[in-house]
Design a binder for these strands. Structure first.
Lengths: 143, 143
DNA sequence: CAGCATCCATGACGATACTG
DNA sequence: CAGTATCGTCATGGATGCTG
């Protein structure tokens, strides 16, 4: 029971989050960077790209490796990443069908940029956590 | 009417998004990287860091430059970034008070990593949009 | 000027059940 | 195995009004 229109109720739009695009915002937010950050900021995309960076995987393989993702979110995120051209989906005509997901060159490019962020996080989030503790000590419950 | 407990209803937690941290997730999601991606993925943080990268600014200055942010989100995001140690808040005792926000060295580090992502987006999001169009043409409404 | 408090709409996400 | 469909929840974030 589907009339065929494409975007399902919660289909993630990548190009334009459909804000007030008419306004002349000083710093436009429907720019490519915002779209990328939306994708990268969601819960599973980066995890999936990281895993597929190690090698191609099947649906349930990903599900097991991630462990904590619902199959709704997994398939939804995979479809979005495929649509973005960041990964490729191959259907092998076995019985039952097996589907393999593989990162594309474009996805690998993004992953490289992503890894710099990840490296920064792993070396410097300690400083961030320390700053948070200092902030909370000073303002949160000061005597 | 506030009993003094710190986290307000919608206070952004950076360290742990309060998932099922008890589970032994194969790929833990309450890692520093996830926390960073949550911050970076929200709507205003990156924009604010970029603006403050150009120079210190006041509250309403930021609000004007961004144009589209509510002051709730602006102050909330600024407070979170300050708590993370990514920017500093200085109160000048003028009349009325003026408050200046300035990026910290830590914030500048993050901004540098961020800029690589932004550069990637600006050069390669064209390819992503093309992939989306191809995907939609093939699956969305194919004859 | 620089915020905080409150209400409310949307939508992201998870749980569950069902299919080829 | 690899999904789709549906429903409920809860957080995100915008609008509005008030304060020092």
């Amino acid at each position: 029971m589907q009339d065929g229109t494409f975007p399902s109720p919660d289909y993630p739009e990548v190009t334009a989050p459909r804000r007030d695009a008419g306004r002349g915002d000083a710093y436009a937010r429907d720019c490519p960077t915002r779209a990328l950050l939306d994708r990268v900021g969601d819960k599973w995309s980066v995890l999936i790209l990281l895993l597929l960076g190690e090698g191609a995987m099947r649906f349930n393989g990903l599900k097991r490796r991630i462990g904590g993702v619902s199959q709704k979110m997994l398939s939804q995120t995979l479809r979005a990443l495929e649509r973005d051209g960041l990964l490729a989906r191959e259907v092998l005509p076995t019985t039952p069908v097996s589907v393999t997901y593989r990162i594309t060159p474009l996805g690998r490019e993004l992953l490289a940029a992503l890894r710099l962020m990840i490296d920064w996080a792993e070396t410097r989030m300690g400083a961030v956590v320390a700053a948070q503790a200092a902030y909370d000590a000073a303002c949160g419950r000061a005597p």
